[in-house]
Structure formats: C-alpha cells, structure tokens
Design a protein around this nucleic acid. Structure first.
Length: 465
RNA sequence: GGCGGCGUAGCCAAGUGGUAAGGCAGAGGUCUGCAAAACCUUUAUUCGCCGGUUCAAUUCCGGCCGCCGCCUCCA
C-alpha cells in the first residue's frame, strides 16, 4: 500500500484510487513565456518520481499537464514583439519538451493548451453563474469567494485572516474584494488576443484553465493533483472553488505539493532573478542526469538548496551505480552461497519497496540501493554470489532504475569504439611484454580522450569519463 | 499581522520514544606492474539552543534563536 502526504488533510494517508489500479492525475504545467528553470524542474522531477512509483507498484496512470499559453506576460511581450501569442510561445513549448527529454521526465499523456479550451472554460463560468458564485464588472467576470463554503481550506487559511498586513493588491482589474479572482478578463488593449463569449470579448483567468481542462480529461472527481507548494494558495484553492462550485462534487482526493529549490538563501524564481536553466548547466559541462539525481534524491517535501557541489556529488553517486551494473554484466560467477544470495536480494527488494511506498521516501530507498551495492560487491569479491544471484541483482537494479532512470549514460560526445578496442589490444600486447611504460602511455592517451580503462580479472574494460 | 515548513558529521541526506541509514569528500589497509573499480577499517557519545514529560528524547510538549515559503504572478 502506497501512502502520500495530503495537503488537504495535512496527514500521510493510504492511497486509494477511485478506480482500482487506475490513477488520474493532473499537474500544473509551465507558462510558456520563457525557458523553464531548474526550480521548475524540481516539481517536474517530483511528478515524474510520483508517476513512475505508481507504475512501479502496478497502477495505470493517466497524467494531464496543462500548457499556459495565454496570460498577461505572454500578451505584453508578444504585443511588443508584434507576434501572435502562438508564434511567441511555440519555441518555449518546444524547449520545454526538449528539457523534459533531457532530464528523462516522462511526458504527460495529454498536454492541453489553454488557448484550445476556451469553450470549456466559458461553460464552466456559466455553471458558476448559475450557482451564484460570480459577478460582472465592465465585461469581466469575477469569482465571489465569500459565496463558496470552506474557501481557504486547502491552505488552512481563513479568508478574514488574509486582510491583516496582506501585501498590496496589484491586480489591474476592479473587484469587490481583493481576494476575489478573475474568471474572465475583458479585453483592455488594441491588438490583444481575445475570444468571443456571452460575457463579451476577452480571455480566461489563469486559475480557470486547470479546473476546466482537468475535469475535461480526468472527470469531475479524480485522484491526484500536484505541483509546487507555491501553488497551494491561491491557485489550487481557486481551482477547488471553481471546480466544486461548478459541479457540486469533490474535485480531487489527494493534493501533493513539493517544496522549493533554493538558491542564495531564497526560492529560485524568475521574478527574483536567482535561477539557472537546464541549458545553463549543460553549457557549464554538467551532466543533466546528475541534475536529475540531485533533484530526486532529496525528499520532495524538504527544501533543497541548490549547489554545483551537490550536482558533482550526484554524478559520483551515479558513477558508483553504473560501475556496479557494468561489473554485474561482466562477471560470470561460479558456485556461491545460494541462501545468502537470495536473502540479500529479498531484503533489498523489500526494503526499497517499503521506503518508497512511504510517501515516496526516495532518500531512504536510495540508502537501500547503496547498501545492496556494497553487499553484492563484497559477495562478488568473496565469490559468494551465485550466477542466479547475479542475474537477480541485475534485474533488481534495472527495476529500481525504472524509477530513478540514471543508469543509461547521457548522449554526449560520440566515441570511436573501434579505435578504443584497437588501443586496448595494443596495450594488452605491451602488458604481456611487461612494457609498463607503453601500457601507461596508451592508458593516458585514452584518458585524454575521456576514456577510462580498467583492468579486471575478466580483461580490460573501458568507460567514458 | 495570519498560516505553514526547515535546522542531523567537512558537504548532501534518511530516520526512530530505546540509544544515529546511505551518498560524496578525507585518512589507513587489502587487491593491482602501477592505476581504476571493489572490499575492509576509520570520520556525529551526538541530532540549532534552553527547559519539561518519561525508566529512556534527536524523536513528544513549551520557550528561544536562525533560515525558508505562502497570504501578489510563481513549480
């Protein structure tokens, strides 16, 4: 049984999907006005680990992630650049998908765009109007939160507490109450993109798309909704108000939120300017998979302070796993301790599953992985592992990697394998003649090309640096 | 002002009312022609500080200090 911390109840709860073995989940996607930064990708990695873990435990997933391709910033910038919003956002949508691939984040099953679901949003506004949860102001439509029961429930906030000391409301639109939010924004500027609606020409408010599109693809009530913790309030609270206000049904059963990535003592964010993009890290020579490991290795609800040192440490940890796999693939043990071999496998399998199923305790699960690596390496050294055990160990490692996805090397810099093999053959000759000088020269030459040689009992092997 | 979270070795990071996983880095050793990889030993009498509850607290309670977040767009 897998359990999750549910923001709604503030407790770790056993996960029970609406339909046995099937999970509907929605995660808030990017606003595609610029490149995403690695703080954004912490949330995406979290969702990826969540999805892969659910699959690992046998669930079938339907995952929906929105692409916000219309909002104030997108409109402002595209107007300035004299582009349509589609022209302006397209490269950033493509870059986002490319970054997901680079980080091995499995794509959602559906990536609905806000601009392609205007009608669904209009329908939702009309349902809210029928339920007396809205009011109109000069062509805009607002949600009247005082008419929704339990507003603030998700964040543990009482609406009346928001007033004291709250920061200044900067919204450009006029509302009865500063906490009310726009469902429909009337067109303000010439050339601004807008859609016809019963309320006039305009465009949807930001919160609305997630309600309309999640319900469209996942139904009025679905299992999991997730994102960064900054979305808890007001975004996710507003989604609840909209969805439940329109349908009268429970919107989402489990709300999961991940903590922020920090840099320079603050949340990494675009507006603060303290961010790196994935492209920045790759340009500095870091392996994106080392970043993947960094972002997944800390529990999702703990704050994570970004540093390049941590990324380097992650790279070293990954190397240990990759070296372990290469050793398992290379060695062909004979004999061995049958009982001990199966026992070590069983303990590790069980330990990993227990840790992971407990609110995705990935750090604990990784502890099990590395303990296993040490145990098996020691058994190989002592000739205690059986061939059966070796095959089982490899299978277990691959099973874990269905979640971690760090074993495969990043595709960067092609290697001329024939040349490497040729050099290794030459070096073997030199070593036979005990010409250590020549052997070392060849090894160093390959090292300069980024190839590391290892002399094992099974012969000389190589790997990329 | 309201609400929430965090503080564990040089660095990263789990965890539990019963005496501190794991990774990285460091030191010593085994193996190796030398390396690399691997293994062994070693690195927190101690879990921000101060009290309290308890036979026993890092783990529960209270206070304090430091840091972060949300209440505005935000992963």
């Amino acid at each position: 049984m897998i359990s999750f911390y549910n923001t709604l109840t503030r407790k770790v709860e056993d996960f029970k999907p609406i339909e046995d073995c099937k999970v509907g989940m929605y995660s808030c996607g990017p606003t595609v006005y610029d490149f995403a930064h690695i703080g954004n990708f912490r949330a995406n990695i979290f969702v990826d680990i969540l999805k892969r873990s659910l699959k690992y435990f046998g669930y079938e997933i339907k995952h929906v992630m929105n692409l916000t391709d219309v909002d104030d910033r997108i409109i402002d910038i595209s107007l300035k650049k004299e582009m349509t919003i589609q022209e302006y956002t397209k490269p950033y949508i493509e870059a986002f998908f490319e970054d997901l691939r680079t980080l091995r984040i499995q794509p959602a099953d559906v990536f609905p765009k806000a601009t392609e679901h205007i009608e669904d949003m209009i329908n939702m506004i009309e349902a809210l109007q029928k339920n007396s949860l809205t009011y109109d102001r000069s062509g805009s439509v607002y949600y009247k939160i005082s008419n929704f029961k339990n507003y603030g429930e998700l964040a543990g906030i009482k609406p009346e507490d928001l007033k004291d000391g709250a920061r200044i409301d900067t919204d450009r639109y006029d509302k009865d109450n500063v906490q009310d939010f726009a469902l429909w924004k009337a067109k303000k500027l010439d050339g601004e993109p807008c859609w016809e609606s019963p309320f006039g020409c305009g465009r949807p408010g930001w919160h609305l798309e997630c309600s309309a599109m999640s319900i469209k693809y996942l139904g009025e009530t679905f299992d999991i909704h997730c994102g960064g913790e900054d979305l808890i309030f007001p975004h996710h609270q507003n989604e609840i108000a909209q969805s439940e206000g329109a349908t009268g049904k429970r919107f989402v059963n489990y709300w999961l939120h991940c903590a922020h990535l920090q840099l320079d003592g603050e949340k990494m964010s675009k507006s603060l300017g303290n961010f790196y993009t994935l492209r920045d890290l790759v340009a500095k020579g870091y392996d994106p998979i080392a970043l993947r490991y960094t972002l997944l290795a800390t529990h999702y609800r703990s704050p994570l302070v970004f540093s390049f040192e941590t990324v380097e440490q992650s790279a070293a940890a990954i190397n240990r796993l990759r070296d372990f796999r290469r050793r398992l693939e290379r060695e062909k043990p004979e004999g061995g301790d049958v009982n001990k071999s199966s026992e070590v496998l069983e303990t590790a399998d069980k330990g990993f599953n227990e840790k992971l199923s407990n609110d995705l305790n990935i750090s604990g699960a990784l502890g099990e992985v590395f303990t296993f690596v040490r145990n098996i390496n020691g058994m190989l050294d002592d000739r205690e592992l059986t061939e059966q055990g070796r095959i089982g160990a490899l299978a277990l490692l691959c099973k874990w990697d269905s979640i971690l996805d760090v074993l495969k090397e990043s595709e960067r810099g092609a290697v001329d394998k024939e040349y490497v093999e040729e050099m290794i053959a030459k070096r073997i000759e030199a070593r036979k003649e005990k010409n250590w000088h020549e052997a070392d020269r060849i090894r160093n030459e390959l090292l300069d090309d980024g190839i590391i040689l290892e002399d094992t009992p099974q012969g000389t092997t190589w790997k990329k640096k």
